[in-house]
């Protein structure tokens, strides 16, 4: 099957701005799903609200576009009710770590078999460029005209601390890497958290003098380095990319099946 078969062409053109990084993740996701040859009827996507969450509309999966921050909570119910489903949960950084922060850490803690993708553009895109918990200090945003004073989260560390069993990071510049990591994430049993740094040229780029999409992606190329690389060793201030954890721990749906077995004894 061609990867185009996995999109809902009749709903295009998409709503994203020219140069937005979200489409790159969609592209990688479609190729990954095609490559894995997963059963079509098992494919689900649950998203929240934000530019990134609109991905759900464009994939020909069972798609549930929910409420801001609530995607993982909805996905938890869906997956537990039907554990055979393959559930993808794309989220914006605000979606996942501000309003949805509680659901995020608890989904990680439960280790429920979902593929969570955080599209981190360090800004609230959909609402017009307000700062997010990922913006970090000294960022200009429509609600930080004098620069933000908030410390940022580190999504990777947050996921690790909360107990996620697969945690990885890449960027919109590294398209093939998104695909490779996504593949690992999907095949991983338990929760996988993949952070993808994506450019929002419209708000983050423009407000913070980072230029357009191309310049922003060049920054991802220059400011990041693979885990274990010489580049990272030489310059530890770079943002590390790659797989931070790939562990096995009891998966929630499987553990719940054991509860049922115990209860029926």
């Amino acid at each position: 099957m061609a990867f185009r078969d996995y999109i809902r062409e009749r709903f295009f053109p998409h709503i994203w701005c020219p140069g937005c990084g979200h489409g790159i993740v969609l592209n990688a996701l479609l190729h990954t799903v095609e490559g894995l040859g997963l059963d079509r009827t098992s494919l689900c996507m649950v998203s929240g609200i934000g530019c990134s969450s609109r991905i759900a509309g464009y994939v020909d999966f069972h798609t549930m576009h929910t409420m801001h921050g609530r995607a993982l909570a909805c996905a938890t119910g869906l997956k537990l009710a039907r554990p055979s489903l393959n559930v993808f949960v794309p989220m914006g950084d605000g979606d996942a770590t501000a309003i949805g922060g509680n659901h995020f850490i608890h989904a990680c803690r439960r280790n429920i078999d979902l593929t969570a993708i955080v599209l981190n553009n360090r800004i609230y895109g959909m609402t017009g460029g307000q700062f997010s918990p990922l913006s970090g200090r000294d960022v200009l945003a429509t609600t930080a005209p004098y620069r933000s004073i908030d410390e940022p989260f580190d999504i990777v560390k947050l996921a690790l601390g909360a107990g996620a069993t697969f945690v990885a990071r890449t960027t919109a510049f590294h398209v093939r890497e998104i695909g490779n990591l996504l593949k690992k994430a999907v095949l991983h049993k338990g929760i996988s958290v993949l952070e993808v740094l994506v450019q929002c040229p419209t708000y983050f780029g423009r407000k913070n003098n980072q230029g357009g999409a191309v310049e922003m992606m060049e920054l991802y190329r220059d400011n990041t380095a693979p885990l274990g690389s010489k580049k990272l060793e030489d310059n530890p201030s770079l943002i590390p990319r790659g797989v931070f954890r790939e562990d096995t721990r009891p998966e929630y749906c499987e553990e719940y099946a054991k509860v049922v077995a115990r209860a029926k004894e």
Binding site: V46, H62, M64, T66, M67, R70, A73, C74, A75, T76, G77, L78, K79, L80, A81, R82, L85, N102, H103, H106
Partner: peptide, 14 residues
Amino acid sequence: IASMCAVCGAALAG
């Protein structure tokens, strides 16, 4: 919040 959301997800699964 999460409880009500999980209910919505589960109901869509049947």
